[in-house]
Design a protein around this nucleic acid. Sequence first.
DNA 1: TTTAGCACTCGAATTGTTTGAGTGCTAACA
DNA 2: TGTTAGCACTCAAACAATTCGAGTGCTAAA
Lengths: 344, 344
Amino acid sequence: MLTDRQLLILQVIIDDFIRSGQPVGSRTLSKKHQIAFSSATIRNEMADLEELGYIEKTHISSGRVPSEKGYRYYVDHLLPPQRLTRADIQKIRSVFAERIYELEKLMQKSAQILSELTNYTSIALGPAFKESKLKRMQIVPLNEQTAVAIVVTDTGHVENRVVTIPPSMDAGDLEKMVNIFNERLNGVPLIDLKEKMETEVADVLRRHIRNYDSMLNTLIETIDVPEEEKVFFAGKANMLNQPEFSDIQKVRPLLNIIEQEKDIYRLLRKQTQKGVRVSIGHENELRGMENCSLITATYSVGDEPLGAIAILGPTRMEYSRVITVLNRVASDLSAALTKWYQSQ
Amino acid sequence: MLTDRQLLILQVIIDDFIRSGQPVGSRTLSKKHQIAFSSATIRNEMADLEELGYIEKTHISSGRVPSEKGYRYYVDHLLPPQRLTRADIQKIRSVFAERIYELEKLMQKSAQILSELTNYTSIALGPAFKESKLKRMQIVPLNEQTAVAIVVTDTGHVENRVVTIPPSMDAGDLEKMVNIFNERLNGVPLIDLKEKMETEVADVLRRHIRNYDSMLNTLIETIDVPEEEKVFFAGKANMLNQPEFSDIQKVRPLLNIIEQEKDIYRLLRKQTQKGVRVSIGHENELRGMENCSLITATYSVGDEPLGAIAILGPTRMEYSRVITVLNRVASDLSAALTKWYQSQ
DNA sequence: TTTAGCACTCGAATTGTTTGAGTGCTAACA
DNA sequence: TGTTAGCACTCAAACAATTCGAGTGCTAAA
């Protein structure tokens, strides 16, 4: 177990390093007002902390730098309390004060405010619509061969696809078909839509409409394309401001991960337990993120976590501030969404 | 006017520099099989070319590098003919061979193939829908207070917004309203929609529906939000592979421009005359693009240019190849879109 | 247990040197 | 008159040598 003095020294080292990015030496530490011991004493303690794996040297005669284990301990036990300024709180609030017209805009804005307040890259994963149910289906014919199929969910989300109309079908059939759908499928969760269409509805259709099947198949096929939740990024270029990424070679894999979106998407998707999670350096499974920390928080509607927002930065990250900001944005976002969903 | 020999030398210098990225010296040139003169002769010619402003030295005793004027001349008069390989042509064709379900996917794929074939950053501007006309409007109530307003255009494009229903309005009114819209506004270009709604339709509404006006205003307001064409990027990270951008300081402003999207959007929007356009270095008005060239091409449906695709890279760019690829993709994209629109 | 002192280490910055690719100019040549 | 060989000169880049300073570990005294 670490002594109080060791804890103090560890904390000051990490705080200082996060601020400056420079290895911290014993003399620098001894000058801090929080610390009353000589540099020699500190050197002894630092040697112990190093042996325990909390800090490291960059070379034999250098100051110390936190190890991943050190950061982990810091995040778990030593986070200095942090309060947002009025201005920050105000900024966040103003984002969510406006009337929501589009969920996507809201998510984009959330990401934006996150990267603005932290100067890191931020990510927002759109809410998962798996749960949402069919409110209305609509087919708008464009001409003889094509039509737009539109699906509206109870959450106000709209999906649409262009479909081909089989030559044997006319406008009347189409209308009948849509009516049957809306009668039978109202309130069905989108995930079950395909199955229901194939079983229950097919029977009814068979009785009323000739040649319904090729059209039905086209529809099922197009509706079934699983719509992935969108990922919103902001402040990608902030990555370049970090001195640890001043070397192009080190940024490239990161920017690739970011550009790809898919990996990040999966990472955030996994995050379903409530609250803030911090992944430091090699705790991230993704290759190319060894020098990064990813801090995620979930947002929810009512009690159910729907999605996640996250900050991506170097392991030398302002954990305290980032976590505070993330918490605040997540809770404001949750509140806004809850209000929005409740009115549905 | 330049002599034939000067032209030859200029061309070889630029070709070589584009390939190698290194300043080209007289000895290197004299060894090329296309060139039969001694290095001393070449030095004389190069001195002339420099005086005329087509090439520059990086320092007093260095080889020569093309100036922007040199690139401009090269692009206008010296482009070596370039043919795509079968494989390349095949790759492009396969992108457009598939059935189009969503315009956005198609644009995204166009951008992707562009950056894949050129190793630069590519941009695709979605088709401008200004011309498109209202096919159908639909209002789907979600609950007492809110509804989704959906607009379908004759091109199969779907726009939707959440709107608030004034308390004084009931489901019947809503339905009547939509019916009136669809009767009166079918075929009206989206740009004129607002005006028509305010003038013609308002009168009819007044006669049939109580309290129509607050709802109408909400609708007009939400429909009127000008939907900007989307910009699709691909290969952003390719920027980092260029040796001229190996310094973070030089990439940052560029990545900022790219991340912002707005400036690029405007730039591409302006490009309406048909064909390929090349902007070299300072010909680009945007700050931060001094070291870049932007090559744009328009794609059209029938005879009307609808949008643009572009490649962004360093001024030392493989102009010949890029222009060839861009032309090919633009014409294949045009063909695909034309087919698609014709069937509407 | 703490601290002062000292020898030692190493990265970073500075300086000097060498090397090679390139130039311009001049004089000879075809 | 145009072309070329030769020569002196320039400069960036690579490399080695040197210095400087911030840091360490260890020891002995307080």
